[in-house]
């Protein structure tokens, strides 16, 4: 008995630690690489004198666009996430709470899933042609529109789940209390689904931040995003591994900050006590 109860937890922890190492190793390797010199990296040194050379080159280098890439990505991710959250929340509320015929709900949701299953790259070419003909190629608006389109189905499904969790009676109580739909949303539904908004928003932001193929097709140097900036360190003749690692490490920071800030919103049990 005693033997059994000891080996159980030890084994469990060993598996968990092993798994954590597998997940963390590439990340640690990249962060370490970002502090190495190219030579130290290529020689595979584990003990090395850390240097900020790569960071300096990425941020201040004459040929580096990384700061611009960072700004572009921030604008595009924030704008597309804001649009996606607004549209998805309104759409989910409408679909689940405004008494649409059943088939409308099914058709829309099924269509959005199908759309979500199409790899974005298949759409990129068509978008490029369309955007070029209306002058939206190489603009923020073009990429923002594209990212909004890519992320909307997932956000609609997620917000649908959160909105369905808001008891119908709360909406009805607000209607009786004198609220029209915009105020029902503003004062009752949105405050209650705030954790859902935070979770959906983080995912949309990260997807937009990381998205590569569509941004590659629709942007040029002035509107290039962070993933394109990172990709640029792999050139025809050389691969600037350490700069690439430094850029990658920097690119993780926004998502990291977002998660820490939003953590306090993602609290379970906010609705406890509303209905028995």
């Amino acid at each position: 008995m005693i033997e059994h109860s000891r080996t159980g937890p030890v084994l469990r922890h060993a598996v968990l630690i092993g798994f954590a190492l597998i997940v963390l190793f590439p990340f640690v390797w990249i962060v370490m690489a970002s502090f190495k010199t190219q030579i130290a990296l290529l020689m595979g040194q584990w003990r090395f004198a850390p240097t900020l050379f790569s960071y300096d080159s990425v941020i201040n280098g004459k040929t580096s666009d990384f700061v611009t890439n960072f700004k572009n990505s921030s604008i595009i991710a924030i704008a597309s996430t804001t649009i996606v959250l607004s549209v998805a929340t309104l759409a989910a509320f409408s679909l689940y709470r405004l008494q649409w015929a059943d088939w409308v709900l099914r058709v829309l949701l099924a269509w959005s899933v199908i759309f979500h299953m199409v790899p974005p790259i298949t759409l990129a070419g068509a978008w490029y042609t369309m955007f070029r003909s209306v002058g939206l190629d190489n603009t923020y608006a073009g990429i923002i529109l594209a990212h909004t389109t890519i992320n909307l189905p997932m956000a609609l499904w997620m917000m649908g789940v959160f909105i369905r969790d808001v008891p119908k009676e709360l909406v009805e109580a607000a209607q009786i209390d004198g609220a029209r739909t915009p105020k029902v949303l503003r004062y009752v539904v949105i405050p209650i689904v705030r954790p859902g908004l935070a979770a959906t928003g983080i995912l949309c932001f990260i997807f937009s931040w990381n998205e590569f193929p569509v941004a590659l097709t629709l942007s040029q140097r002035a509107t290039a995003t962070v993933p394109l900036g990172i990709g640029k360190y792999a050139q025809e003749n050389t691969i600037a591994y350490t700069e690439m690692a430094a850029a990658s490490t920097l690119s993780i920071i926004p998502a990291f900050i977002l998660l820490i800030v939003a953590q306090r919103f993602i609290v379970r049990g906010l609705t406890s006590g509303a209905v028995k």
């Binding site: 009676e169 709360l170 209650i192 509303a274 028995k276």
Partner: peptide, 14 residues
């Protein structure tokens, strides 16, 4: 001009 009390109370949780 009506007020309603629901079975589930329907109090705004926030």
């Amino acid at each position: 001009g009506i007020s309603m009390v629901f079975q589930s109370y329907a109090l705004y949780p926030h």
